[in-house]
């Protein structure tokens, strides 16, 4: 197991290297110019050239590439062009908000998606199933930003049930311990702060979790239908076990193995979805920050954040694989 983890981490090195090369090229292929973005539309060509020289953008691409590697290896991933802060620091600053959002979205997806999928499978071919199959298809194909804007429009702008954006009402003077706002409120027993952070989380989490929920429901459905036809489920029924025991121990335990694997893939979906959701709800996480960086052509931030997100994504998938090895006794990690 340890060997498996070590090997997987080593495999990450060439992947990240390749990604950094691609990112370097891709970011510079974007139309626009960081110096122009920094100085505004009315800057003189001299000022722009001056800033370009200061940022090293006047050099040839190979030279720029070498220059760009240095901060990567020094460990701070360079500094932002627009706010001058070290990229790594900003990343870890913004990470808790995104993790909190992602976890909430995943929680909704799992808690709602699995029972829905199970229900549909048990009623295969009848109306609950038809409803879920078509409904989840809608959930899968609807873009995240569309769901986000729609939710915000209806529940925040029109009905005023929930806040339109942000992580917490700025008027609340909350103490921050972990930077997970809801958790902070609970830890410090500032219940108002916790509640307010929670309320701010609802719409973004639903917006982000919808697609994942639809996926999970569909995969659960397919997987349960398959398991229901397995011989061992028939064996379990022949024992006269209660419907509850058969479902839980024999059907779900096997069906969920397939769901676990997709949670890793879901992480990628959630991270990319977070960029859009955070932007719509003005939620100051890594997605929001990355979005800003892309608009200002903040090369070091874009490169650094995407790389770090990739590392993060790989770690989540590694964790899923390890979890799979623990849950399924047949899998020996090697």
């Amino acid at each position: 197991m340890l060997g498996f983890v070590v090997r997987r981490l080593l495999q990450l090195v060439p992947v990240l290297f390749g990604l950094s090369v691609l990112l370097f090229i891709w970011v510079r292929a974007l139309p626009g110019d960081p110096a122009r973005a920094l100085l505004g539309r009315h800057a003189t060509p001299e000022a722009v050239a001056d800033v370009r020289a200061r940022l090293g953008l006047d050099k040839s691409l190979p030279e720029q590439y070498v220059a760009h590697l240095k901060p990567l290896f020094s460990g701070d991933f360079g500094r932002s062009i627009s706010d001058g802060r070290p990229v790594l620091e900003s990343f870890f600053d913004k990470l808790p908000a995104t993790l909190q959002l992602g976890a909430a979205a995943l929680l909704i997806a799992v808690v709602v998606g699995i029972p829905l999928g199970y229900l549909a499978a048990r009623h295969q071919g009848r109306w609950p199933d038809t409803l879920l199959v078509s409904g989840s298809l809608l959930g899968v194909v609807t873009p995240v930003f569309f769901v986000a804007i729609l939710l915000r429009l209806v529940f925040a702008d029109w009905l005023h049930w929930l806040p339109t954006g942000g992580q917490q009402d700025p008027r609340i003077d909350a103490t921050h311990v972990t930077d997970f706002y809801v958790l902070d409120g609970i830890l410090t027993r500032e219940w108002d702060a916790a509640w307010d952070a929670f309320v701010h989380l609802i719409l973004p989490a639903i917006a982000l979790g919808t697609m994942a929920m639809a996926y999970i429901a569909r995969i659960t459905r397919a997987s349960v239908i398959e398991v229901l036809g397995e011989d061992y489920v028939r064996t379990a029924r022949s024992k006269g076990l209660s419907v509850m025991t058969v479902s839980r121990r024999h059907v779900l335990r096997n069906a969920l193995l397939a769901v676990v694997t997709t949670v890793g893939l879901m992480a990628g979906m959630l991270l990319s979805g977070a960029v859009l959701t955070e932007t719509v709800f003005n939620f100051t996480g890594i997605g929001h920050y990355l979005f800003e960086a892309i608009s200002t052509r903040d090369y070091p931030v874009i490169e650094g954040f995407v790389l770090l997100i990739a590392v993060f994504y790989s770690l989540i998938n590694l964790a899923v694989d390890v979890a799979y090895g623990v849950i399924d006794p047949r899998v020996r990690l090697s």
């Binding site: 064996t235 849950i327 006794p329 047949r330």
Partner: peptide, 23 residues
């Protein structure tokens, strides 16, 4: 279900697939 497994029990054909792999 009170009868199955208690008064009437069954042995199935394929031992490779008739046992739950994760229990």
């Amino acid at each position: 279900s009170r009868l199955s497994g208690r008064a009437i029990a069954m042995v199935f054909q394929d031992p490779m697939t008739s046992l739950n792999p994760v229990v």
